[in-house]
Design a protein around this nucleic acid. Structure first.
Ligand code: ZN
Ligand code: ZN
Ligand code: ZN
Ligand code: ZN
Lengths: 135, 135
DNA sequence: GCATCTATGTTATGTTGTAACACACATAGC
DNA sequence: GCTATGTGTGTTACAACATAACATAGATGC
């Protein structure tokens, strides 16, 4: 039994997830494509199809405000509560966190409005601690 | 003294804002361009440049998860606290609200992390009340 | 064998967003 | 008047992001 694979990935899914995991930060689909050309990737759809599945599995998150994708920071994660992201505009660092209290308030609001919530996007832009410190 | 114009808009800005205001919902930049061809618009930059200013003025919001823009629902608004959006995936309706408590919690988190928050993106996807009722 | 489902490969196209350069217009300083 | 400066504008070309449509390949179940 595998400990770190809730989903058996196909070859392309594994390659794409590997790229994101190795990168340790967000990559665009086309950046992934370029990284994987030496593995035989030729067309954007090969990347997008794998990303669709990985996002569905909860192993990868899409950053809407960057048009980019990032591996979930919970290693071997098979999905968790809604995530939020703090994105540094100086260095590009992305920090994932899970603000359950925030999500609870948003869910309360949607319920009070009769809105059936499917998913949330929370992305914070600013400057990270080390970039603030260094000027 | 004008009551509804905190900013004197240029011709192009007024046209773009008018389109969004009349639409009563989100439009992509290219949809705006098509609407404004009869007013002499020929190129996407004419739209994007106006949108940049309108967003800066706080009169228009960008919806990252739709790659679209929407007039602020506060008429004559010159900017307010961070907004959030509930987006119906059935009918496309977008409801703007201002969840101060949520923003406060997010701000607390960023401050505890030394992250200098510049702006927030909060977008909720789901099904609106009337679409839930009718389907 | 045959239907069905999923994954994959490939070409072409559609959608969203900018770079670079030129020009018009207003305002301020000389 | 005449420059300098800043901002708004117009235009061409291009870059970046995403999908449609069609073909092929392998696995599973009957
Ligand atoms: Zn995650
Ligand atoms: Zn940083
Ligand atoms: Zn608003
Ligand atoms: Zn609806």
């Amino acid at each position: 039994m595998r400990t770190h694979a809730q989903h058996e990935l196909t070859k392309n899914q594994a390659l794409v997830y590997g790229s994101l995991s190795d990168a340790g930060g967000p990559l665009t689909a086309y950046a992934i494509l370029d990284l994987l050309r030496e593995n035989g990737f030729r067309a954007p759809l090969q990347v997008y199809r794998a990303l669709d599945k990985l996002v569905e599995f909860g192993m990868v998150h899409r950053l809407e405000s960057l048009n980019a994708f990032v591996a979930c920071s919970h290693k071997g994660c098979a999905g968790h509560g809604s995530a939020a992201f703090a994105i540094c505009e100086k260095c590009g660092d992305v920090r994932e966190f899970t603000p359950d209290d925030v999500v609870r308030l948003l869910k309360d609001w949607t319920e009070s409005q009769g809105f059936a919530l499917a998913r949330t996007t929370i992305e914070l832009r600013g400057t990270c601690k080390s970039c603030v410190a260094s000027g």
